[in-house]
């Protein structure tokens, strides 16, 4: 796209800036729409599993429910508690929202359809997702209220714990693909057994795919790991003191993060924009359709788990992260690298 604007007579810098801004808008605006619709989908799935109807009043089948909620929240007054730290109180939701958006910069939707095709794409995702905890911690502290503070403490411990095992799981995938670049990782998943696309079909990586799915739920604070906003204990967790747009930014950021984690599941283990079978007619469907279909599938799994699994107790959450996931993922790092050493890199010399 930079070349296109340069042909129109712009200098390189101007063309680069313009094409980057357009690229960002092309991802961010549909993402916001997707978040609105996915909140609706989440409520509908959850309702169906509880034999309820879910949102069904605003628009046909209640499709416009999220927009009505958005308009309502937008028109509300922003209440800032008098004891709160004003600046940080308002910065916290902005951090959550921004962090949820900027991670999408390196996600490939198709070969070459990516805002920033950088070499360290996966590390960038790890770095950005490790920033997400600041929104929660700051909101908890700045609210100057006990329940948000408890929630912030829980959130930071939880996110740091699960990041460790996510890191090791990613190392397994990176070892197999031989690259940190997300497009290269997707391309490396072609043709398992001659007809399947996806690392998840590899018996060495399949357990990692399951663990990544569970860790992703813990990392985004979704049920059954939603200890940060456990309503029976902490009112609404770190969002307790928030109202209006500040609250909406948390909400949007959380769901954008959930979609991102679903997308990462698809990219790392289930072939991203590749069709599930390595069969020529399937490639006629554009890659972005496959990618979105996989994201929707994983989102359904997330909602399914949310509707059916009870919340973990906090000490058991920590036990799962440190005593089960961490040793298992570490073991698989050894296993995968040992296997690759024997087969791909010519054995011990």
């Amino acid at each position: 796209m930079t070349a296109f604007f340069q042909n129109l007579g712009l200098p390189f810098e101007g063309a680069w800036l313009l094409s980057t801004i357009i690229g960002i808008l092309v991802i961010a605006l549909p993402l916001m729409l997707a978040v609105a619709m996915i909140i609706y989908a989440d409520r509908k799935i959850w309702a169906a599993m509880a034999l309820r109807r879910g949102p069904n009043v605003v628009g046909p089948f209640g499709l416009l429910q999220s927009f009505a909620d958005g308009a309502k929240v937008f028109l509300q007054e922003t209440i800032i508690p008098s004891a709160a730290n004003r600046t940080l109180f308002l910065i916290a939701p902005i951090i959550t929202f921004t962090v949820a958006l900027i991670a999408w910069a390196v996600i490939p939707f198709q070969v070459g359809v990516v805002v920033a095709n950088i070499n360290v794409g996966l590390l960038y995702i790890l770095a950005i997702s490790s920033l997400g905890v600041y929104g929660v911690v700051l909101s908890g502290w700045a609210s100057n209220s006990k329940y948000p503070f408890y929630s912030a403490i829980r959130a930071s411990a939880q996110m740091i714990s699960y990041e460790v095992s996510i890191g090791f799981i990613l190392v397994c995938v990176v070892l197999w693909a031989g690259s940190f670049n997300l497009t290269a990782i997707v391309e490396s998943q072609r043709g398992y057994y001659g007809f399947l696309n996806g690392n998840g079909f590899n018996p060495l990586l399949f357990p990692m795919a399951i663990m990544f799915l569970i860790s992703a739920m813990a990392e985004t604070g979704r049920a059954p790991f939603d200890l940060t906003e456990a309503e029976s204990e902490l009112v609404a967790g770190y969002q307790t003191e928030y109202s209006s747009m500040a609250f909406a930014l948390f909400w949007l950021g959380e769901y954008a993060n959930v979609i991102l984690m679903c997308g990462l599941n698809a990219i790392l283990f289930w072939g991203g924009y590749l069709p599930p079978f390595d069969w020529a007619p399937l490639y006629l469907v554009p890659g972005i359709i496959w990618f979105l279909a996989k994201i929707l599938f994983f989102f359904f799994v997330f909602s399914w788990v949310k509707a059916t699994v009870p919340r973990y107790r906090y000490d058991q959450l920590m036990r799962l992260g440190w005593k089960i996931f961490l040793p298992t993922s570490l073991f698989f790092v050894f296993l995968v690298s040992g296997f690759l050493m024997l087969t791909r890199y010519g054995g011990a010399q």
Binding site: I118, N119, V120, L123, Y124, L126, A127, S130, L131, V133, Y134, V137, W141, F149, A152, I153, S156, I160, E163
Partner: peptide, 25 residues
């Protein structure tokens, strides 16, 4: 040095500073 940059963010910003912030809070 993009690798060092990402490590700086992951290790210092993502882990060390969080714990630090925690203690100070």
């Amino acid at each position: 040095a993009e690798f060092i940059a990402m490590l700086l963010v992951i290790v210092y910003v993502g882990a060390v500073a969080v714990l630090f912030l925690f203690v100070v809070m």
